[in-house]
């Protein structure tokens, strides 16, 4: 079995801003280890002559021209926000 500790799960949960109960933490620790084991099967393949890839499609250099077009209407944009004020998205206070 791959080694995943409850601390790993707590760390990742914290990064993802998720909160788990102790029971859930145990459960995910076990499940994540199994998932990693399954993915680990790929290590059995001989990839000596396979070049590394970072993209699944054989395409390159997809670009657009640098042309500006009208943006969305602000009222429409802000209509999707949980809270808006004076043309801004409103969020809980961020302390810097």
């Amino acid at each position: 079995m791959a080694t995943i500790t409850t601390d790993d799960v707590k760390h990742v949960a914290n990064l993802a801003r998720l909160e788990f109960s102790e029971e859930e933490t145990q459960q995910f620790t076990h499940q994540l280890a199994r998932i990693l084991d399954y993915i680990g099967k790929l290590n059995e393949l001989d990839t000596t002559d396979v070049p590394p890839t970072s993209h699944v499609l054989p395409i390159r250099n997809v670009v657009k021209e640098d042309v500006a077009e009208p943006s969305y209407d602000r009222d429409l944009v802000l209509a999707t926000a949980p809270a808006a004020e004076e043309g801004h998205f409103e969020v809980p206070q961020v302390i810097e």
Binding site: E85, E90, V91
Partner: peptide, 18 residues
């Protein structure tokens, strides 16, 4: 860009301009 209190004066909120 984050804008603090000065949009509405409410110190408990922050505001975002994208």
């Amino acid at each position: 860009k984050l804008v603090h209190a000065d949009v509405t004066g409410d110190p408990n909120r922050s505001y975002v301009d994208f």
